[in-house]
Each structure stands twice: as C-alpha cells, then as structure tokens.
Design a protein around this nucleic acid. Sequence first.
DNA 1: TATTGTTATACTCTATAACTATA
DNA 2: TATAGTTATAGAGTATAACAATA
Lengths: 137, 137
Amino acid sequence: MERTDDLGALVFRLGRRLLAMEQPILARHDLSMWAYAVLTALSDSPMRTQAALAASIGADKTRLIPVLDELQRRGLIDREPDPADRRVRLLGVTAEGRRVHGSIQAEIRAGEDEILAAVPAEDREAFLRTVAALAPR
Amino acid sequence: MERTDDLGALVFRLGRRLLAMEQPILARHDLSMWAYAVLTALSDSPMRTQAALAASIGADKTRLIPVLDELQRRGLIDREPDPADRRVRLLGVTAEGRRVHGSIQAEIRAGEDEILAAVPAEDREAFLRTVAALAPR
DNA sequence: TATTGTTATACTCTATAACTATA
DNA sequence: TATAGTTATAGAGTATAACAATA
C-alpha cells in the first residue's frame, strides 16, 4: 500500500480529533485528561506507589501530585500511607470515583463509536486490533 | 469487539511511540517536527500565504515564523513577497529542501515499516486505510 | 478599514533539582 | 545511604494580543 502521508502525521491528527471529542466531556465533569487517566488506571487495579502509577500512565511523578491532590479532595480516590512503610501511598479508586469514571468512559466510548461508524465493520475490527497491538504497554 | 482501553489512550501511546522513533532521525538532520511538517506540506504543493500553511498543518501562524526563518536561512524553502500583493509571502520548497525532506522521509518510512512489520499484512492494510480515513484533513 | 505577517508577552505544560520524611 | 513523595524553579511550547506594512 503506497502511503502519501506519514503514519506519524496521521496518528497525530487522529489523536487531536479524539482529544477534541473528549475535551468537552471531561470539562463537563471538571476533570483533566490526566485525572481521567489516573481514574482509568486505578479502576483497573489499585497501586502501591505514586511512582508506579505515574509510570503506568507515562506521566512524570511530579506532575501527578496536584492531580492526586484534587482527586483526593473530591473523594474520587483513596490515598493513604502504607502502615508497613509510611513512605509509600496506597492508591485506589473510591466507589464515587468508579461511578464518575464509568459515566465519563461511557460518554467517551459513545463518541468513539460515532467516529468509528464511518468505516466498514471489517476494517474497524482490524484497526482496533492493530492499534492495541502497536501501542506500547 | 469489546475494548479494554479507550481508543484515545491507545492512539496517544502509539503517537508517542512513533514520535520517539522519529526524534533521533530529525535530530540527526537538525530539524524540528514542525520544520519537517512544513517541508512535507510545501513538497506537496507551494502555498501563497503563511496563514494557509499554518492552517494546513494545524499549527498557529505565530509559532511557524521562527521555523520559517530557520528553513529559509538554511536554504530549504523559498519565501518571497508576492509582487501582486506585497503583504503575502509566496512559499515553496527549494531543490535542496526537497532533497533533505526526501531523505528524512525515507528514514521515517523505514522506521514505520519496522513497527508495522509486527502485524499481519491484511490487518496492516485495513489499519492504514482506516487511520487515513479517520484523520482529519 | 481589513488583511498579512511579525513581535512581545503571558500562560500552560513539563521536567530538573532540591528538600522532607521515612526506612 | 537509599527511597517515596513533595515543593520550587526553570525551561519549552503555545496562544493572545498589540503592532507594522500593505491593500
């Protein structure tokens, strides 16, 4: 298949399109993209350190701190010192956090489905399979 | 197909992976990603205004100026006032600019092929077709 | 008065390094 | 002395608004 545009440029533009779709949804729930990423990661499984969480979502540990402060303040995550080693913070999502995450994710999935509706079902399957295979982590 | 990760997150991560692959290539040629994007756009077709160029690559017109200054200084682009309307700058790529762009693009394509080699040929075709269809512009 | 390009400025995002508290 | 987390700071990237030149 002869390619006219670089794959990087295409992926970059698609990423921007998806972000533009997500932005109003996140804004409505008053959450940043990173806050949503944290909720996604912690909904998947709790973590024992902030550094591990940062690594798992590809963020710097220092720029996660205000995000965690805010999520904790709003009661969306649990964050408490490990009694066994009080340097580390045990992290998890609260029931309310899981609820908020679920409702945002449902809206985002609907937006994605709308975008994906433009391509034939077979291509869509192969596309999703391939993106998942090529994306790190 | 049930999706575990959000499509946005997958595309974001793949974009970062592609950028990481491209970065050393661009650095070797001492060009920024935006400079390369400008060369790509102008290689495709010359443009009559900087604003049109900025819009075509999804950049702000003000942040393109230092990029154009540098590309012009290095003789990779032509940039001259239109005699018919001296407010506008006619933009085009020079022979040297086309040569540089071609050699960078070849390296980037090779890197992309290496990444794409991990997926079966049928999926690859559908994937490329779909990314191109979903990416704006 | 409107438009193109430019400059100056401010703002956001991000990373680096220094600091604290625990071990 | 090493590690987890935090704070302070600086740097890059980006956008906003004011400005100059031309129409």
